[in-house]
Simulated assay, not measured.
Amino acid sequence: MLTPGEYLSFLDARLPGLVAGAHVYGSRVLDDVVPDSDLDIVIELSAAAEVPPLEGADVAVVLAGSLEKSVFEVTPLSGEVTPVLWQQLRTVGQTVRGARPSCPGTAAEVEAYCRDNLVSYWKVDFDRFRDVLPTLRPETVIPNAALLWVGLGPARLWHTIRTGEIVSKSRAGELAAARWPDLPVLDLVAVRRGADLPLTVAHAAASLELFDRILADVTT
């Protein structure tokens, strides 16, 4: 598993003197590291340059000083920046090079982003699946990675909309399972944490039902 130090050594060898700041977020700071977890990191460069890709690193690149501005004023050099990212960096993010950033923003901006993302991103995908679901056999095993993404991602947004807190995928699954115990959400959490449990189309159908309940819960 790639460490921040290894990644910075990789960058320094290819972009000597340009990496002014580095800030870790995601599973590494939310106590949710699993064997295939990427290193989620924001890199600040002192001048514009192309950051070479490295397997195991999920990177957003900005110019130095960008993290002291509103996210809406920042155009990243690569990757994506969002109000949710800014909140992570200013609350639980770990600075491994440079000064800790202020990442100014408001709870209202984070909530608005999460609400929009539920509809503009997740609802589009789930509506496509809704059309395909009747053609699939419930017992058919499907790839874990895809199902964990769609099954746990909306639950994170749901919790942030309700509370303002940003939690990991696993924690979001636990919270959604406590709210809707009739759905097999804990199966997804267990598989994310390494359990040898087959996930099937039935789990995908439950993820669709969970999404519908989440959408109803945050719009009523």
Rank of each mutant, 00 (worst) to 15 (best):
P52K: 07
T95A: 01
F129A: 10
T95R: 07
I41Q: 07
A107M: 12
S46R: 15
V92H: 04
D131H: 13
S37K: 07
V84D: 06
V74D: 03
V92R: 09
A99S: 14
L63D: 06
K123A: 15
T75A: 13
V59Y: 05
G98Y: 02
R137Y: 04
K69N: 03
E111W: 01
L63F: 09
G98L: 10
F129P: 00
D38Y: 06
G105M: 11
Y121S: 14
N117Y: 13
A107C: 00
N117D: 13
C114W: 03
R100K: 14
R128H: 03
C103F: 07
Q87C: 01
T75I: 11
G65T: 11
T106A: 07
G105R: 10
P138M: 01
A64F: 01
T135R: 11
V132M: 08
T135D: 12
R115H: 05
V61F: 02
T95G: 07
Y121R: 11
I41P: 01
G105Q: 13
A112E: 15
A60I: 12
V119R: 13
S120R: 15
V81A: 15
T75M: 05
P76G: 01
V96N: 10
A49Q: 09
A49I: 04
R90N: 07
A112N: 10
A99K: 14
R90P: 06
V92I: 09
R128Y: 11
A107V: 05
N117S: 11
G93E: 05
P101I: 08
E109F: 03
Q87H: 12
T91F: 09
S78D: 10
Q88N: 11
Q87N: 03
K123G: 01
V124M: 11
V61R: 03
A60S: 15
